[in-house]
């Protein structure tokens, strides 16, 4: 039984597949969000040093991780769309950008609100903060460049260039705390050593990371379905879909 890998690379079949998957991810996002917030506020203890302000970590870290991860995923799909000329891949990259930009803004916003009580300042030109700000500009650049070009296929190609060039910024953000060792502290959680965090705090944070993943997938699939309908409105399958919807 040869698996047809390209079955879901056609917008029509992907449209129906993603339609079925969205409710699952919405459900998982809500469940993990409630669990994460409960652990974060009612189970995790007060921090001996930071008191209660540290509870911002339950959205600051997921937002920061998502901002970097979504950019890499966006650049990947933009690259695939550029290389193989598959328009659905480019549609997916276009659908990821707004959610990535939102998480980048949230990482900066929650970071500033955490920095004020802990560092005594909203903003400092620290290596990590500055490279995250550049990431926000890259997202905005990607979205505005694509919006400025009328022909969607040309906009996809132009966007892919910005996305691929900007990927170099992601390792810079990640390693900025070691290379420049400025104000922002190093990684308390990494794959190769024990986390420097209390277990309940870590569990709460990781559940919130999963919640942000589930949310991102649900929202991005929801947006890509609208983009598919926008760009495929001249096709027969959309006309038929509309007839079915009208008949309902």
């Amino acid at each position: 039984m040869a698996i047809n890998w390209f079955k879901y690379s056609s917008p029509a079949s992907f449209y129906s597949l993603s339609g079925k998957m969205i409710p699952i991810f919405v459900f998982l996002a809500v469940v993990t969000l409630i669990a994460g917030l409960y652990i974060g506020f009612f189970v995790a203890p007060t921090d001996f040093q930071q008191g209660e302000a540290y509870r911002i970590i339950f959205i600051h870290v997921p937002a920061a991780w998502m901002s970097m991860f979504l950019y890499v995923v966006m650049a990947f799909w933009a690259g695939i769309g550029l290389a193989f000329n598959t328009r659905l891949s480019s549609m997916l990259a276009t659908a990821i950008a707004p959610t990535g930009a939102m998480f980048t803004f949230l990482a900066l916003w929650t970071g500033a609100l955490w920095g004020k009580p802990m560092w005594g300042t909203w903003w400092v030109w620290d290596a990590r903060l500055t490279s995250e700000l550049i990431l926000l500009f890259l997202y905005i650049g990607f979205m505005s460049l694509q919006a400025a070009i009328d022909d969607p296929r040309r906009a996809d190609k132009a966007g892919a260039i910005i996305a691929l060039v900007g990927v170099v910024n992601i390792p810079i953000i990640y390693f900025s705390v070691q290379w420049w060792n400025t104000l922002h502290q190093g990684a308390s959680v990494s794959l190769n050593q024990a986390p420097a965090m209390a277990t309940t705090m870590l569990t709460g944070m990781l559940i919130m990371v999963i919640a942000s993943w589930m949310y991102s997938i649900a929202v991005i699939l929801k947006r890509v379905r609208v983009i598919i309908l926008e760009r495929e409105s001249h096709t027969a399958w959309v006309a038929e879909l509309r007839k079915k919807e009208a008949a309902r």
């Binding site: 911002i56 937002a63 916003w109 955490w114 004020k116």
Partner: peptide, 24 residues
């Protein structure tokens, strides 16, 4: 009151949920 840091904690959470709902 969140141990005196309520402004910062709720300021973060409020803006986060506002962005999420806004996006949807």
């Amino acid at each position: 009151a969140m141990g005196g840091d309520g402004v910062y904690v709720w300021g973060s959470y409020f803006v986060t949920f506002a962005c999420v709902i806004g996006e949807v």
